[in-house]
Design a protein around this nucleic acid. Structure first.
Lengths: 334, 334
DNA sequence: AAATTCTTTGTAATCGATTACAGTAATTTC
DNA sequence: GAAATTACTGTAATCGATTACAAAGAATTT
């Protein structure tokens, strides 16, 4: 591997001049510039990014910290983050935390050690609450979750509105007794619950507390909780889930009980996963704009890298209701 | 951020001594060692990894280059790669190439610039063919695809055997006229085809060339090709797909034609995706050991980092046949 | 023609670690 | 008790870039 010294020697100039040519500085004679460029080409010189980063005290790497890349939502977001980052000349370092606060702290520290330019992060409630004590040395943009207090950049779905839309859809289809299963780990579940309850209230439907459940956002929990709900003396006519893993679990439970969807039971959920349209009946979902979330988060973090003084911003995106067969009643209920 | 100089000053020693304490070198007096450690703790000193990498001429980062992280196979593998890498103190830089050879070269060059310790890579046939001209400056382990010539490390499924097992399963279930759709971009499809054909031959079934298709490994291609096959004067009794996207497309096509699975048409594919067990009937698949693939590939690349002279190795893993309803005939066919 | 400004280039410091080498003090060997 | 060895620590070079500063020459102004 040739270094800037080799190029300087070959072009018969100093390393400073080589650096200036490469950085496109003015004040270099045309003839010299060409000589340097020729030497660069001849030696196939490529700048050492590590040395550059050390000197300039900042790297061209972004950190992406998610709970689990296998969650289809994060898979899709991460793809968008990477595309956007690479388009701007940045790399992406990926970490999975499994919603484990210790891992979260560990990886945040690692990001500091690696001197990343910025981080896109989807934290647990626990880490969120201590977020300001962390005193991170790099700009951070939160995705999917956020602090009430407005002093962190964030890109989020309008969860309240999304929950409202999805619940309202069920109500419009004639469902009245609606069971709902929310994830307990994040702020996201709470907000979707708010929208859900608002929709019921606006429709004049009284909430039955035993229809509301908060669980670990896992397929198993979705499964067992749905079975629970279906076992109630007066079981719900539809199930609202706040997360695609919960939806998968609920679907399994409904299958086991051999209930007809959507006639005997309706089902709706979040995220337009690959399987949501492949199962029969296909599942009605509130799709998150994953591309947009990833892209916006990356642009936000890069803007803050460029201008650390810029006031913090939250970008709130709207979801899209995709109506499929799992919630559509041919004859509207009584 | 405090540097090693600050620690040296605080502990009243030279930077060399601090470095020695931190690297656990012998020949440091116990009393001095403790003084340094105290200073480190007091200043919350963390070594600058960039400086360390520059000096030691190697980084603690691995590159992972896949065609698309949204492909469930790569999602699962990447999760395993990251877990293993972080357990060994390495980070993971992720890149998506979309099977675009230009992007592949670009990212390989980037990896060189970033001085990654090693790369795990799933190349297109095109890049594979020029692989040795590339003269990469870092160790590379191929996954999912490989060169015939044995001089690159690789971790692969035993694709021939996997194709054989899956085809044999269909034959055992009584299917005789079997259509097969393979991806055209990689060596993987070819090998699975070999196994497929061997199984038919061993069972004394003659191959009909119009049942064999090679297409872009996309869901749309799976869909249209399956419709094609079903339109033949004598349509196949079962469809064999070599990739989960093709399987999804085939499933869609079968649904549109309202054929009963497995009675009127059988379906099998590769990779145990989330949806394969959620759809009805659930799909029989040959599951790849994704965790094992990711873990082995990472360990292989780290071993080569440690010892560049080590002879190259190929790790061939066996898949697992998971029989579900999409291919199980209650009454064996005539 | 002297003073001023601008252009072009090089020298050397710097980023923050690691480590070869050297030097001093302590210990062991004969 | 002198020589040899070992233990400990510091000085300074090094990795490969960037950049402040200086300096020399050319161009412009007065």
């Amino acid at each position: 591997m040739s270094s800037i010294k080799d190029v300087a020697k070959a072009a018969n100039v100093s390393t400073a001049t080589v650096s200036r040519v490469l950085a496109n500085h003015p004040h270099v004679r045309q003839e010299v510039r060409e000589r340097v460029l020729a030497a660069v080409a001849q030696l196939e010189y490529r700048p050492n990014l590590i040395a550059r980063n050390l000197r300039s005290q900042q790297s061209n790497t972004l950190g992406l910290i998610v709970s689990d890349i296998r969650n289809p939502f994060f898979t899709a977001v991460s793809r968008a983050v990477e595309d956007t980052a690479y388009a701007h000349g940045y790399n992406v370092l990926l970490c999975n935390t499994d919603e484990n606060p210790e891992k979260e702290l560990l990886y945040l520290q690692l990001m500091g050690d690696e001197q990343v330019a910025g981080v896109i992060f989807s934290p647990t409630l626990q880490t969120l609450n201590r977020f300001h004590e962390l005193n991170l040395s790099f700009p951070t943009v939160l995705i999917d979750r956020s602090l009430r207090s407005g002093d962190v950049d964030a890109v989020l779905l309008d969860n309240v509105s999304a929950g409202y839309t999805l619940a309202q859809h069920l109500i419009n289809q004639g469902y009245r007794r609606i069971g709902a299963i929310f994830g307990e780990a994040s702020t996201t579940g709470r907000e979707r619950q708010r929208g859900f309850e608002d929709a019921l209230r606006d429709a004049g439907i009284s909430m039955q507390p035993e229809y509301l459940r908060f669980v670990r956002p896992r397929s198993e929990a979705g499964h067992s909780t749905t079975l629970d709900l279906l076992r109630l003396p007066q079981p719900p006519e539809a199930i609202f889930t706040s997360n695609s893993l919960l939806t998968a679990g609920a679907l399994q439970a409904i299958r086991e009980r051999r209930l007809q969807m959507p006639e005997q039971i309706g089902l709706v959920g979040f995220d337009d996963t690959a399987w949501a349209s492949l199962v029969q009946p296909a599942i009605t979902v509130l799709a998150q704009p994953t591309d947009e979330i990833g892209r916006s988060a990356t642009e936000l973090v890069l803007q803050r890298v460029a201008d650390p003084q810029r006031p913090t911003r939250k970008i709130i995106l709207q979801g899209e209701l995709i109506v499929r067969e799992s919630s559509v009643e041919q004859r509207v209920r009584a």
